[in-house]
Computed example of a mutant assay.
Amino acid sequence: MVVEVEIGSLSTADSPRTSGVDPDHVEALAVVQTPLPPITVHRPTMRVIDGLHRLRAAELRGQRKIAVKYFDGAEDDAFVLAVESNVTHGLPLTTADRKRAAARIIATHPQWSDRMIASVSGIAPGTVADIRRREPGSGTGDGSRIGHDGRVRPINGAEGRRLASELIAQNPGLSLRQVARVASISPETVRDVRNRMMRGEDPVVRRGRQPGGEHRVVAPRVRPSAVPDRDAAQDRAAAVKRLKADPALRFSEVGRTLLRLLNIHTISMEEWDQIIDKVPPHCRGVVAYLAGESAEMWAEVATRMQGKVAETA
Rank of each mutant, 00 (worst) to 15 (best):
Y70K: 03
S15F: 00
A299W: 07
K308W: 09
A248P: 08
V80K: 08
S113K: 15
H265I: 07
H265R: 13
E293Q: 13
A57L: 06
S294I: 14
E135P: 06
Q111G: 10
V254C: 09
R56M: 11
L176F: 15
S9K: 02
A129P: 04
C283H: 11
R115C: 05
E253S: 12
P220L: 01
P172M: 07
S113N: 08
T266S: 07
R133E: 09
R236D: 05
A169R: 00
A118C: 00
S19R: 15
V217K: 15
D235P: 04
E253Q: 14
E253V: 10
R132A: 05
V83M: 02
K99H: 02
K69W: 09
S165N: 05
E188L: 11
H89V: 13
A164D: 02
V152A: 07
A233Q: 01
S184G: 06
S225G: 14
K69S: 10
G307N: 08
H53I: 10
G139H: 14
M116V: 11
E27T: 13
A30M: 00
A291P: 00
R145N: 03
A238I: 05
S294E: 09
V3Y: 06
T127R: 07
L262P: 08
L262Q: 12
R17V: 06
A291R: 07
E59T: 12
D246I: 02
I185H: 00
A299V: 11
R199K: 11
A237R: 12
A299F: 04
E188K: 10
A57K: 09
A58L: 03
E188Y: 13
A82W: 05
V193G: 00
T266A: 00
A82I: 09
G73T: 09
D192M: 11
R104C: 13
R209Q: 14
L261H: 06
P172Q: 06
G160P: 01
R207H: 14
D149C: 14
A310F: 03
L167R: 03
L36Q: 13
P281I: 13
Q274R: 03
L55P: 01
H89I: 10
T18K: 14
R230L: 12
R54L: 15
L259F: 01
I264E: 15
H89D: 14
V204L: 02
